[in-house]
Design a protein around this nucleic acid. Structure first.
Length: 270
DNA sequence: AAAACTACCTGAGTGC
DNA sequence: TGCACTCAGGTAGTTT
């Protein structure tokens, strides 16, 4: 699924089509997503979008009478298209817009979510306990050192824990650790402050670079306009097991950490 | 408190 | 061609 750069790219892609447009209808074909599609989305009918923003991997759509919360799960995508376009398999719901266009949600695995809150979305149970944004000012070397402090588990699992930092999924965890020269199996609490500082830098570099490229495209992620992202070609270790490290030529390895595939260079990463 | 495991769901790819 | 099997970008909830 989309990781943070894909969600950010989606958010930026749909935003200009939504801001100041009014929702004129609400069509649900398949309400069974990770949670049942919130019927309160019906309250958006007649309302203009005031804001469209991202927090972690959630897209927040603000109206005068509430906030819609969208999560793309593993395989979700949003597209803006003409209402007459035929519905594809796994197109589950759509918002009809006053511009004549439609925002349609596609999600083969149905791990996504369409929620609603009347209050401050930051207080929503699913958002309340999230860690800092990796590209925000709160995520720095001092913070990461504290967050890793007592952890005995691997640094890779720490990075993927949304209480430590949000938005770092399976691909970028491997990529950032490669960039920082840290072995993914290393115990989080036993990494020096200096190396953690490098890691913060690496996470920010890898995410920012990917956002610039328009996100990674693997399997079923498509941009809102249907075009592909280009970060895939930039991956240094992810899904490159058996191939030579671009830095030292050693063979990239694949291991499993926490039931997730993990890739690293045995020479560059210690 | 943290770590390990389960569950949700479909589709692509592999080996026989 | 078909079947059985593994794996895939997330994350909340439960158990150890």
């Amino acid at each position: 699924m989309p990781e943070l750069p894909e969600v950010e790219t989606t958010c930026r892609g749909v935003r200009p089509h939504l801001i100041d447009a009014t929702v004129t209808d609400w069509i649900v074909r398949q309400p069974k997503l990770r949670y049942p599609v919130a019927p309160e989305w019906g309250k958006a009918i007649g309302q203009p979008f005031i804001d469209v923003a991202r927090r972690a991997k959630y897209i927040l759509m603000t109206f005068a009478n509430g906030v819609g919360i969208v999560h793309l799960g593993m395989s979700g995508s949003l597209r803006i298209l003409e209402a007459a376009r035929p519905w594809r398999k796994h197109d589950h719901l759509a918002l009809q817009l006053s511009t004549g266009l439609q925002m349609r949600y596609h999600d083969p695995r149905r791990f996504g979510a369409w929620l609603w809150t009347d209050g401050d979305p930051q207080h929503h149970p699913l958002l309340r306990n999230l860690g800092p944004e990796p590209l925000g000012g709160d995520f720095d070397a001092v913070y990461l050192r504290t967050a890793c402090g007592k952890r005995r588990g691997s640094i890779k699992q720490a990075l993927m824990d949304s209480k430590v930092v949000v938005g770092v999924g399976n691909i970028y965890a491997s990529e950032a650790l490669f960039l920082a020269g840290i072995r993914p199996t290393r115990s989080a609490g036993r990494i020096s402050a200096g190396r953690l500082a490098n890691l913060v830098e690496a996470i920010q570099t890898v995410l920012a670079r990917s956002i610039l490229q328009g996100g990674t495209t693997l399997r079923d992620f498509l941009h809102q306009d249907g075009s592909a992202g280009y970060f895939r070609q930039q991956l240094r270790v992810y899904e490159r097991d058996g191939q030579p490290c671009i830095t030292c030529g050693s063979t990239i390895r694949r291991i499993v950490i926490g039931q997730r595939s993990t890739f690293y260079c045995p020479r560059c990463q210690t």
